[in-house]
Computed example of a mutant assay.
Amino acid sequence: MGMMSIASSPPEAASPAHCRAHKAFLLCNYVLLGAASSCIFLTLSLRLIPSACGLLLILLHALTIASAIAGCAAASGSSSRWYGAHMVATVLTAILQGSVAVLVFTRTSDFLADGLRSYVREEDGAVILKMVGALCLVIFCMEWVVMALAFVLRYHTYVDGSGVRRSAKVQQEGDVSNWPWPLQV
């Protein structure tokens, strides 16, 4: 009944393709976790705590980490509500990570001087910011891979029969022979 942990394995009855997709999904989420935490540490090394843009940049990476952790449970689980929420969060973080990467690579000096107000030397700050931009680009690409793998996992879960399927068949009103005892009158 609980959520699936990050280190969980696919069901025993799963197909080999489902197992491979599950392992690839976990590996991609681990890469996302590592890249986002590295971005947080690089952003903190710019010494921009009083800056609102710096705080938003750190919060974006924290959202990416939360999305990767939640994705491990949501895409492998049977709840379509959590799956939908994970996909929306992943799309939003991917778009924002891509935007940050473009902003960092096209306007590094303006972004560093005006938006972030860093306390490190401009040359060192530009190098650190370009490393953050490169990691944001990696995160952007990995987010889309994670979304594709989440879709594949959800599809395999549905096809393998462990997904939630509801029948729309309604019983005939006169057929009460197979009703449970308390409901018979």
Rank of each mutant, 00 (worst) to 15 (best):
Y119M: 09
S118R: 02
L59R: 09
V127C: 11
A150M: 06
V170R: 12
A101W: 03
L32H: 13
V138C: 10
C19P: 00
V91W: 06
I65P: 04
I65A: 06
I58A: 05
K23H: 08
A148M: 11
F140R: 02
L32N: 06
I128S: 03
M87K: 05
P50E: 10
R165L: 08
E12M: 04
V127F: 14
E143K: 02
V132Q: 04
T90W: 00
E12Q: 10
S80Q: 09
D114H: 13
E12G: 01
Y83T: 03
E123P: 01
F41P: 04
A94E: 02
R166Y: 06
A134F: 12
A68H: 12
L42K: 13
R121K: 14
E123C: 09
I40T: 10
Y119T: 15
L48G: 12
D114L: 13
A68F: 10
L48W: 00
A74G: 02
A21C: 04
E143A: 07
L55W: 09
G163K: 06
E122F: 05
K169C: 08
H18W: 15
C53V: 11
L56D: 11
V159W: 14
T64A: 15
S99Q: 07
S76M: 12
I139H: 00
R166A: 04
N178Q: 11
I95E: 08
A134T: 11
Y158A: 06
I58N: 00
S51M: 00
T108K: 04
A89K: 07
A73T: 03
H156G: 01
W144N: 07
W144H: 08
C19F: 10
L48C: 13
V159F: 14
A7N: 11
G98K: 01
Q97A: 13
V88N: 00
H86K: 04
I49W: 09
M3R: 03
L63D: 15
G115C: 14
L33F: 11
F111Y: 14
A13Y: 12
E143G: 03
L57A: 08
A13I: 15
P50V: 07
S76Y: 04
L59F: 12
H18I: 07
P16C: 12
C136E: 15
A68G: 09
L33Q: 00
S80H: 06
F140Q: 09
D110Y: 04
E123A: 15
V88K: 01
L183H: 06
I40K: 13
I95F: 12
A36M: 10
A13D: 14
A68K: 11
F111G: 00
Y119N: 09
V185R: 13
V102Y: 13
V120K: 08
V104P: 03
I65S: 13
I58G: 01
A150S: 12
H22W: 11
